[in-house]
Amino acid sequence: MINHEWPLFEVFVRAKRGLNHVHVGSLRAADHEMALHHARDLYTRRNEGVSIWVVRSDQVASSSAEDKQAFFEPSGDKVYRHPTYYTIPGSVPHI
């Protein structure tokens, strides 16, 4: 039997102007246009969005869980990237 399963799409919704699109879940659709319509019906039934992105799940590249350590560790020891690293006398205003 031919697999007539539609491809999977990830859905991102901008809740309102001024905010980023945020991932809300996934759905199945035959193509992008249908994915947008389904996303509207599924994820914005109560005015939860003003804009939707859909992207095919198989097109998403992801950092892998296994080398999470190696991938994110380099930023761990760079404390000087944070403002709290620097001691400024309390008497200095607005800094």
Partner: peptide, 26 residues
């Protein structure tokens, strides 16, 4: 109608969650 449509939505949110574990909706 809106209530029953919500239940369909709930089913689809959940199938979506199951698919993140490698399950296949169909």
């Amino acid at each position: 109608l809106a209530k029953v449509q919500d239940e369909a939505g709930h089913g689809l949110y959940l199938y979506s969650a199951a698919e993140t574990l490698g399950a296949d909706r169909g």
